[in-house]
């Protein structure tokens, strides 16, 4: 993810982003556990400042508020269903989600994933890893937006709620990965747990591996405290598998290390 977006967490916590930045950051936030944790803590810290400005409202306000609530029905709780299922009636009323534009600062990554680099000697690695990985299809796991007052369809939810959404998982020891994808949308989202911290100067890079055995960069995942989530960049349509490798910070044009995870797509 773009460091530019990470650095918006403070301004977001105090509502100091303008409207466009706010929505770009919220989209990022729904996928970035590091930022969620940041925003969470920084928001709590910011609200401590409100202890400095306490002021008693007029008594008439209390009366007005309590009279007002009598006429408003509290919303039901959000019930997160198995998102792998088609959402039925909700689909028509769900907010539409524009095709996400590459956000500022991610231009470099976008340029990178356009390159197509043959895997050469990595070819056998991917196949072996895919065969060795325990791959099974399971239901999706619902992820609601960070601020769920007016639920918006995040990129992850969009993938999960696609009628043809499927999920594959793979685990090895502590490490576990789950990929939800939709052929129809041509998109996928990965979430990982038990990920060891990347070595200094290294990063976790995502790859779409085509039926032609070519790996195309699909962006990065930045786990925090072992957990991470990311929507893959690029088009899923020709992919047969998704892989994760450790690469030098900034990413590589082609995988340079053994994949830590390979998920074969059905």
């Amino acid at each position: 993810m773009s460091p530019d977006l990470h650095h918006l967490s403070g301004a977001y916590a105090v509502d100091a982003l303008d409207t466009d930045e706010r929505s770009a950051f919220e989209q990022h936030l729904s996928l970035c556990s590091a930022c969620q944790s940041d925003v969470h803590e920084l928001t709590e810290a910011a609200h401590a400042l409100a202890a400095l400005t306490e002021a008693a409202p007029p008594a008439s306000l209390r009366t007005a508020v309590l009279a007002g609530i009598g006429q408003v029905r509290p919303l039901p709780p959000l019930v997160v269903d198995d998102a792998a299922q088609p959402v039925g009636g909700d689909a028509s009323t769900a907010p539409t989600h524009d095709e996400p534009e590459p956000v500022a600062g991610e231009g470099a990554a976008v340029a990178r994933h356009a390159k197509v680099v043959p895997l050469f000697r990595r070819r056998t690695t991917w196949i072996a890893a895919a065969a060795a990985a325990a791959v099974l299809a399971v239901g999706g796991v619902g992820v609601d937006a960070w601020t769920s007052q007016e639920p918006e369809l995040t990129a992850v939810q969009e993938v999960q709620q696609a009628p043809d959404s499927s999920t594959v998982t793979s685990s090895r020891g502590e490490l576990s990965a789950e990929l939800t994808y939709s052929r129809e949308l041509g998109r996928s989202a990965i979430s990982m747990t038990g990920v060891p911290p990347a070595p200094d100067g290294m990063t976790y890079q995502l790859w779409y591996v085509g039926t032609d055995e070519v790996a195309r960069s699909a962006g990065f995942i930045e786990p925090d405290d072992g957990r991470g989530q990311s929507v893959l960049e690029g088009d899923l349509s020709r992919a047969a598998a998704v892989g994760v490798t450790v690469e030098p910070a900034g990413g590589s044009d082609a995988p340079t290390t053994e994949p830590i995870v390979v998920l074969a797509l059905g």
Binding site: H7, L8, S9, G10, A11, A13, V14, A16, L42, A45, A46
Partner: peptide, 8 residues
């Protein structure tokens, strides 16, 4: 935004 973040 950096100052805000660092301050928070």
């Amino acid at each position: 935004k950096t100052r805000i973040r660092d301050g928070l």
